[in-house]
Nucleic acid binder design. Structure first.
Lengths: 229, 229
DNA sequence: TGTACATCAGTGAACGCGCGTTCACTGATGTAC
DNA sequence: TGTACATCAGTGAACGCGCGTTCACTGATGTAC
């Protein structure tokens, strides 16, 4: 085996490198600045090379999003498993993982929640996002079973939980927080305490009594994707 | 005065029309689909005409964002003034206005919170967004004065409030909610109840005791823009 | 162990479209006199 | 009230770059024999 040679004809793992380089560019200049020619140049290959790995630009974006959802799922699973207590504590851990993921994977997060990333055709991307989302649904329903979340249609609760962490994550990623002088150093402790507070507030039983949604009577998370058994 | 003539040489108010047409395109195809040539065609003028009103594409986007922040401010002021009770009730009204604005002005909202819209040069845009943001800061501080929000650094409270409504607004606008079967018809009542619950939960005095932020001791909203007096 | 061959993953030149932007020119409108 | 002129806001042709994408070709690698 020869020593690591920088300039071999074959790249090694161009697919992986393209994604890495893309994330760098997104971090620095945003998703709009992504272009395959420029990325190929950064990856050290010619402009045609990426087409052996991605059919087109959209497929690269979809691959980044898919990887992101898989990383998010892993992070949520790992953080949830660290909490062995109440289901509500576990739910807060998922929320914490969500926000922490967004801040530590800004490039992924931006692509994942970009409207035009998700084409109806891409089943793999849909599956990966469904799995991550299902973790949240399950955690909310477990809170209901455990009695730490109000019974009934879990949809409003899921929306509440998701929008809470998604808003914080979005503001963190888009630097919306810098304008009010939030230092990155204090962000971590802030995320932890805020997600816990938000979710514990959500779990208070008085919520459904004022939600105005009981009368909808729809089935429990009927449209939620289910994990394969 | 001749009857309204469809094809006069002078358009009338091309600037306004360009913005309107842009919002239609954003609604249908997203911000990425905006291009000045196509917009000019839709507005019924030649491709060079818009340049008498906007120096370039970025200036058009900035104009849309600025108009959006002005509309948002108006909506928040109007909704806040309808509530004459507690400061905390007024804060919830602002949150409701924020989410309702996002759902009824999707195009504006998308441009307003797009990372690349805000260039440091555009003072008018910065002013309009600062004013809207200041409404939220003032409302939070009024809750503190009134005693319905915990004392101390208001920053975490402002972040909490903002991220809550921003997350819900983002999910509404990006159709993230459709995947869990939230019907548009029930969204309105949901927004009202959720923002109220979220903000009343936020205002509970136990929050700062667990926020892990007291020790930061930073000045109250020191970086927040102040309204001109 | 060497040779032939298939296959994979590169190169780099080229094509061509879309679109931002410019520019000389022109029709409409307002105003001074 | 008409005329001259300035100015504003259009036209539409053209320029040119950026970039997605293609394609014939080629170097590297793996495998059968």
């Amino acid at each position: 085996m020869p020593p690591v040679k920088k300039s071999t004809y074959h790249h090694g793992d161009l697919r992986k490198t393209m994604i890495e380089v893309s994330l760098d560019v997104i971090d620095e200049k945003g998703v709009d600045a992504l272009n395959l020619r420029g990325l190929a140049l950064l990856a050290g290959v010619s402009s045609g090379a990426p087409y052996h790995h991605f059919a087109d630009r959209a497929e690269l974006l979809a691959a980044i999003a898919e990887e992101g959802f898989e990383l998010l799922e892993s992070a949520m699973v790992a953080e949830g498993e660290r909490e062995t207590g109440d289901a509500s504590v576990r739910l807060a851990a998922l929320g914490r993982a969500y926000v922490m993921f967004a801040t530590s994977h800004r490039g992924h997060f931006r692509v994942m929640f970009r409207g035009d990333t998700h084409s109806a055709k891409d089943a793999a991307l849909k599956n990966s996002s469904d799995r991550a989302f299902q973790l949240l649904c399950d955690a909310v329903e477990n809170c209901q079973i455990e009695g730490t979340a109000p019974p009934g249609d879990p949809k409003p609760l899921v929306v509440h939980a998701w929008s809470t962490v998604h808003g914080l994550a979005t503001l963190c990623v888009d630097a919306g927080l810098s304008r009010i002088g939030i230092e990155p150093e204090i962000l971590a402790s802030m995320i932890t305490s805020m997600t816990s507070q938000m979710f514990s507030a959500m779990a208070r039983p008085q919520i459904p009594n004022t939600s105005g949604l009981e009368q909808s009577g729809s089935a429990c998370c009927q449209s939620m994707p289910k994990r394969p058994t």
